[in-house]
Every structure is written in structure tokens, then in C-alpha cells.
């Protein structure tokens, strides 16, 4: 999904110099794609605030952009990281059981047909995604919603490719159970 854009470094330099027109160009070009990610990862309630943070952090970190990848990829990676930070922070606040990104035993694999304890009523897919732990949600959203491959997800999340597959499978099982609830 890499699409190294011509002039990305120049655009970054112009943004850093305080060129609002250039920054708006950056926003218009990438906001929709990133918004979909924040929407699915953080949920509707936090998606806008999170995207606002993404562009704020992007401006602050643009000085570190070296042009090794496209600005789109760079922004996407930044967004994934901010989403994960957000989810972990929220999870911590809710005093839920934490799980590790590459820990295959973070949550039990549910057998087919076993109802999810937390889901008494039927949830739609959007709500069910929001109920996933951060690591499951990341793998599911990136693979099944966003269309990334496991090798790309592994790089984005800093985990092994096998872990990405495992997380995705567990996420699907969890979702199935939530939707059956």
C-alpha cells in the first residue's frame, strides 16, 4: 500500500515553515482515509478528537520525516500508534484486563458457538468492533476493514507476522461470539 508521492518532502518542509495552504493540502489529501481508521479503531465518539491530535502530532513531528516512505504511509503509521495509545489509555482507565500486542495467550480462544459473556444482546458489527481489546481490534481493522496484509500489519504494529494472523483469528472469533450474543 506504499505510494510514495512526488513532492512529499517539499510539502513537509512547507508545512514546517508555517505554510497553512500546504498544511491544508496535507489534510485534504489524507484526512478521509485517516478518519476511517480513527473511526473504526477508537469509535465514533473519539474519532474526531483523535484525528485532530493526529494532525497536531504530525505537524510537530514533520521534522523527523525523511522521505523514506510516502507522507501517507508516515501519517498512517502515526495514526495507528496514536489510536493504540488512545485505546490502551482508555482500557487502563476502565481497569479492564490489559493485553499485550504479541501475546498469543492474551485472551482465550472461544470455541464455535460459545456465547460471549459480555454480550447479552445482539450488537452490530461497528459496536462489536468497539468491544474488542486493542490488539484484536488493530489486527481486525487493519486487515479486514482496511485491507492490509499481515506483513504490512506486522510492520505497522511492530509485531511478528504470525502474531498478526493469530490476533486476527482471535478477533474474528470474538466478534462472531459478540454478534451471536
Amino acid at each position: 500500500m506504499s505510494d510514495i508521492g512526488i513532492g512529499d518532502r517539499e510539502l513537509a518542509t512547507r508545512c514546517l515553515a508555517g505554510d497553512r495552504e500546504a498544511f491544508e493540502g496535507l489534510y485534504r489529501q489524507h484526512a478521509s482515509r485517516l478518519y476511517n481508521l480513527t473511526y473504526r479503531m477508537a469509535g465514533q465518539a473519539d474519532a474526531e478528537d483523535l484525528l485532530q491530535d493526529v494532525f497536531l502530532q504530525a505537524y510537530r513531528k514533520l521534522g523527523t520525516y525523511k522521505g523514506d516512505s510516502s507522507l501517507g504511509t508516515w501519517l498512517y503509521r502515526l495514526t495507528v500508534n496514536l489510536c493504540l495509545d488512545h485505546l490502551r489509555s482508555r482500557q487502563g482507565k476502565m481497569a479492564k484486563v490489559t493485553d499485550s500486542l504479541d501475546d498469543d495467550d492474551a485472551a482465550p480462544v472461544m470455541s464455535p458457538g460459545r456465547p460471549a459473556e459480555a454480550a447479552a444482546a445482539r450488537l452490530d458489527l461497528e459496536q462489536a468492533i468497539e468491544a474488542l481489546p486493542p490488539s484484536y481490534r488493530s489486527a481486525f481493522v487493519l486487515h479486514d476493514v482496511e485491507g492490509y496484509q499481515h506483513d504490512e500489519i506486522a510492520k505497522l504494529l511492530g509485531i511478528a507476522e504470525g502474531s498478526s494472523k493469530s490476533l486476527l483469528h482471535k478477533a474474528r472469533l470474538r466478534l462472531r461470539n459478540l454478534l451471536q450474543g
Binding site: Y35, N36, R40, E48, Q52, Y59
Partner: peptide
């Protein structure tokens, strides 16, 4: 799943930040 579009008002906030 439907593609979501950020509201235009979000750019106003991002611009204020910038």
C-alpha cells in the same frame, strides 16, 4: 463497512491547532 467522511468543522479545529 461504509467509508466515513470527517465533518468540515474538523478542519477548522485542525487549522486552529496549526
Amino acid at each position: 463497512l461504509p467509508k466515513m467522511t470527517p465533518p468540515e468543522s474538523l478542519w477548522q479545529k485542525v487549522r486552529a491547532d496549526f
